[in-house]
């Protein structure tokens, strides 16, 4: 950070010096011409500006070429590689735009309800796949299975919490909200409810052992599955 602020300071010093030289030069030129603004004077001043900018930029050209880099010039420090992550980000944005476009076309009457439902469903499915892949990229391969289970647990806990609320106050039906296109979730909730509670209980200890070794984690990760099998049998 200190280096960053030093660079910023130097940048302002350079620009300030540049401005100072420019202003002094212009005042001198104007003074030599009694500050009588004529076309030749204007172009002399523009020429002086060009000279100052030329000097500054050519000096920076040379200085950059011979500069000693403090950072490694390898791939890690080379700009901001987009790679797979960039592609996925773009694809996600494309899917979002496509969904909004399809919704707008539906409301404009260019798409039928059925066509819009189908298209938006496709785009949503792809967007969710892309988001999954992005999460995998963020986490790397090592934590994939474990973290997937953690998410699963968190989601189940959240759903369970909602179900408790729903029992107290029934949820209103959403009509043309975009979330209705992900209609498969409702079925999954109903089927998995009995197991969810048990699974959540079983996994809780897993959460407490987050700092365990990878081997222990692998053993722990197998536990919820075993419990599920016991519950189903």
């Amino acid at each position: 950070m200190a280096t960053g602020s030093d660079d910023k300071t130097m940048r302002w010093v350079r620009l300030g010096s540049l401005g100072f030289v420019l202003v002094v030069g212009w005042v001198f030129i104007g003074w030599q011409n009694s500050f009588h603004i004529t076309p030749p004077l204007v172009f002399v001043m523009l020429g002086y500006l060009a000279v100052v900018l030329t000097t500054y930029n050519l000096w920076r050209t040379g200085a950059s070429a011979v500069a000693q880099n403090e950072e490694d010039d390898g791939d890690a420090s080379w700009g901001k590689p987009t790679g797979a992550r960039g592609e996925l980000d773009r694809e996600k944005r494309t899917m979002l735009k496509a969904i909004k476009e399809a919704e707008f076309d539906l409301q404009m009457g260019k798409l039928s309800q059925a066509d819009a439902h189908q298209m938006i469903g496709m785009y949503r499915a792809r967007a969710i796949e892309v988001m999954k892949e992005l999460e995998q990229l963020d986490l790397g391969a090592a934590g994939t299975v474990r973290e997937r289970n953690m998410r699963e647990v968190k989601a189940r806990v959240a759903i369970e919490g909602r179900m408790v609320k729903d029992k107290a106050a029934p949820r209103t039906i959403v009509d043309d909200d975009a979330a209705s296109y992900g209609s498969g979730a409702a079925d999954a909730d109903d089927v998995k409810t009995p197991m969810m509670t048990e699974a959540a209980d079983d996994v809780m200890p897993l959460a407490a052992t987050e700092a365990a070794t990878p081997e222990a984690s692998a053993i722990e990760e197998s536990k919820p599955t075993d419990k599920l099998q016991e519950a189903s049998s």
Binding site: Q118, G121, A125, K132, R151, Y181, A185, A188
Partner: peptide, 15 residues
């Protein structure tokens, strides 16, 4: 590309 059903609870979180 069909609108695949959400296969896991976590997908609802992503949705």
């Amino acid at each position: 590309m069909t609108a695949s059903h959400i296969t896991s609870i976590a997908d609802e979180d992503l949705a």
